[in-house]
């Protein structure tokens, strides 16, 4: 861990101003990922701006019938919040499938979005990594890539730059729910649709998301529809708990009788960001729930997927997981 200065921000404006003054500073909230990365010398901020005392710690109703999650609400408080548990059980289940109770008590909702991708090589300074050192090469492509991406790894130049995956469970549910991210920064406030918040590696794998320099997440807005009747979060991993997903599926259906009228499918553990394909989801509209239909959708969701050896099993696993999650959401059987 390098030497750094510390500032405790006493308001959002203060935090943003401090960050604007020092481009190599970083905001710190729960710290569960940033401090880990600092101990590995992967992150080396010159200053930490502690935002934990900012008034972003409540869950409130929004005008359009949704919920606003303050950026500093902990993952645990979110999952166990009465309104979240009742109206957004998919989100609550996804959160509780992640990390451990202790980490969920520390990690904040805004911080959850800011987790960096998980990759053995990104975390290990002894090995080349394009995300850590652009241009140094990706060790995972020809290395040990069990946990790595199978989708969205392409780049404009044709050379795959990075096959790391986003490790969040919460974000997979947020992607399915089509949350929006409220941010503020030197140029004022803006709203980022969830699908546009995280990005694919392309030719700039060092950039995980579309935040501009100095921007701060203030809240995450959940739209009114929480798909609370027909949903499933399925997480597959190498032990029963306290492990990152190999593949996870957030499935949410809106049904009228036997007929699906709206569908959302988000995948975790397969790409640099939570993976969605709205055009594939649309294939379910007007269909009756059945494993055959779900299989067709699963195949389409994985269209173009590519394995790199150790992770090639994910191509089949993800399909099976999609079918199972949709079946659970539709309450088949």
């Amino acid at each position: 861990m390098n030497s750094f200065a510390y500032t405790r921000a006493d308001g959002v404006t203060h935090a943003v101003a401090e960050r604007a003054d020092e481009s190599t500073a970083a905001f710190i909230a729960g710290g569960t990922n940033l401090i880990d990365l600092m101990k590995e010398n992967v992150a080396r901020p010159t200053r930490l701006i502690d935002i934990n005392r900012l008034p972003l710690t409540t869950i409130t109703d929004t005008e359009n019938g949704g919920l606003r999650l303050g950026a500093l609400v902990t993952n645990a408080d979110t999952a166990y919040d009465d309104k979240v548990a009742k109206n957004y059980p998919l989100l609550a289940e996804a959160i509780l499938a992640g990390a451990s109770a202790q980490l969920r008590n520390m990690a904040t909702d805004g911080g959850n979005l800011m987790q960096r991708t998980r990759c053995y090589y990104f975390y290990d300074l002894a090995t080349p990594c394009n995300k850590r050192e652009p241009g140094s090469g990706c060790s995972a492509i020809n290395g040990y890539n069990r946990i790595h991406a199978i989708l969205g790894t392409g780049s404009p130049t044709g050379d795959v730059q990075c096959i790391a995956t986003h490790p969040s469970d919460m974000c997979v549910a947020l992607a399915a729910l089509e949350a929006t991210v409220q941010v503020t920064g030197p140029d004022g406030d803006r709203t980022i649709p969830f699908a546009e918040f995280h990005r694919l590696p392309g030719d700039t794998p060092q950039i995980d998301n579309t935040l501009e320099a100095g921007e701060l997440i203030t809240a995450i807005d959940l739209p009114a529809n929480g798909f609370s009747k027909n949903y499933a979060y399925l997480k597959l991993r190498d032990r029963a708990s306290y492990a990152f997903a190999l593949v996870s599926v957030a499935a949410a259906l809106e049904m009228e009788g036997e007929t699906i009228v709206d569908a959302r499918i988000a995948l975790g553990g397969v790409a640099h960001k939570p993976w969605r394909r709205p055009e594939v989801e649309a294939m379910l509209h007007g269909k009756s729930a059945s494993n055959d239909v779900f299989q067709t959708v699963a195949d389409a969701m994985l269209d173009g997927a590519q394995g790199y050896g150790h992770n090639t099993f994910k191509l089949e696993l993800a399909k099976r997981a999609i079918v199972r999650a949709l079946a659970q959401a539709a309450k088949l059987n």
């Binding site: 390098n2 030497s3 750094f4 200065a5 510390y6 960050r19 190599t24 970083a26 905001f27 710190i28 909230a29 990922n33 940033l34 990365l37 992150a43 080396r44 901020p45 010159t46 935002i51 950026a71 904040t108 805004g110 911080g111 979005l113 800011m114 960096r116 850590r132 050192e133 652009p134 060092q206 950039i207 995980d208 998301n209 935040l211 320099a213 100095g214 921007e215 701060l216 997440i217």
Partner: peptide, 22 residues
């Protein structure tokens, strides 16, 4: 909450210790 997405520039000033706080 931004991490060092843009890789931190190499630190060229001589290494020093952080300030102490109460």
């Amino acid at each position: 909450m931004t991490l060092t997405e843009k890789a931190a520039p190499p630190m060229k000033q001589p290494p020093s210790l952080p300030a102490m706080h109460t």
